[in-house]
Structure formats: C-alpha cells, structure tokens
Nucleic acid binder design. Sequence first.
DNA 1: ATCCAGGGGGATT
DNA 2: AATCCCCATGGA
Length: 271
Amino acid sequence: MTLRLRIHPFSLKDTLECGQLFRFTKVMETYIVQSSDRIFSLWQKGDDLFFEGIEESFLVRFFRLDDDLDAIVRDVDRDPIIHQAIQRYRCFMLIRQDPWEFLISFLCASAKAIPHIRCIIESLCKSSGEKIWFGDYMGYRFPEPRCIGPSPQLEEVRAGFRTDYLIEASRCVDRSQLLALKELSYGEARKALMNLSGVGKKVADCVLLYSLDFLEAFPIDTWIKKGIQKAYFDGKRVGEKAMEEFVSKRFGLYAGYAQLYVYHFWRNHPL
DNA sequence: ATCCAGGGGGATT
DNA sequence: AATCCCCATGGA
C-alpha cells in the first residue's frame, strides 16, 4: 500500500544523498532505504512524499517532522551568511538515525569519500549475513552489537585502520548504553563517546546530532573549518577551542541545524 | 605517481 | 594548545 505525506520545503534526493545516510539504493526515481531494522521505499513528487513498507509515524521521526522547523530556523538565522545558507538548503532535512548503526557508520567514515563509505558499510552488512527482502530487492541487515569481531569476513570489508575501531565498539557498546547518553548533558555525553577509540570530537558530535537528539552539537570537519575561517574570521587561522566557542555562541541551541545548512552551502559554493 | 577523502591518536614542541 | 606524522584504502 502506498501512503503519502506532505512536506513543504523538502528535497528527498538531497536529504538522502547528502552524506548523513549511507544505506539506500536509487531505482529510477524511487529510493529503497534501510535504516535500523527497517527497509522501505520513498519517492517524491512536488510537495508529496510517497512511501511503502513503513508507517507514517516512523517517517515523522526519521525526518524529524516532529521538530518545529520554523521556530528552529528563526532562532538559527542570526547573520547574513547563515541566512543565505538557510534560503538555499532548508529543503535538506536532518535525519534521526539509530545510534548504533550511525556510530559504526561514522567510524568507517574518517578520511574517506562518501561513495567509498557506502561501499564499506554495504560490505560490512553483507559480511555479517542475514538477508532481508523488499519485494524482489535483497538487502542485508546491519550487524548488531557484539557481531563485529576479528574474522576473515571482516578483513574483506577492507576498512583499513578503521577495522580496530569497529571491533572495539562492537565489544564495548550496545544500544542501551548509547540511548542512556540522552540523559546526560551535551558535554558529558560527548566526553563519554570520546572514550571509544576512533571517536574524536567530530565523530562524537555527529553521533550526538544525528542519532541522540543533541541539536546543539555542531560537527566541525575540514570543510566547515575552512568555511568558518573564511566567512567569520577573515581567512585567519582559528584554534579549535575558539572555533567551538564561536559556533556555540553564534548558533545556540539548534546549532546542529545550522551546521547542516552551512556545510552544504560551503561544499557547493567554495569561498 | 601523487594526492586527497565529512579524522583520530600519540608524541613533540 | 598547536603542529607533525602515521594509520589503510581506493579513486582521481
């Protein structure tokens, strides 16, 4: 059965393909998406989002339609630069993902290009077995905690130096521990995540923002760093600490949404 | 061939 | 705290 949802400023293509989500396949104009234990299909026509294989309530959480985007954008829109980014990139939605899957995915992502990250993750899922069908499309489930260990199959994933990160995370972390981080303050949760090897500030902030509802997290990667320096510091080098303080003061409680907009703004229009 | 890709860890300054 | 180097892999 096909269901429909109206979402106004919304681009399904950009939201799925912008690098926050890795497990999807495009068949014509339809996306088959896998996230946590779900597999479903989506396509967009104008302001209408059509979907199969999933209930509406899942998508409302998935695309964070439960956020008051108008209020968030109003709050974050604090200078001409972010204003411009919002105008063009507001149709990009922040996707709320499963913390375990997201953590492992971003452990694979360091110093990698997006297409290759997708290959590694697909290969990781394939290596852990468990086929799942959606119509005549066959996918693989994401490996559960404790299911990634030293093995020939894992070697075949060819994750390079990231392999040890995956093994340790699989040994030390489960979903309940990750979800429990939601009860902590942003700073405490961030510190806790950074105890894992392979998790520094950037990856910790991504996990907090994209899977644990810490909207104040503002992941700073190489692109953002360059953009902030050029746009806000007249091209001069800025220390990590100073930059963190700047973005937190400038963008406030919903800095994560600001990050989504300026990230794509600076990637697509290098200064 | 050489560089770089949504980084992180460890040592050194 | 800032800077260097290394980590393993594949694509440009």
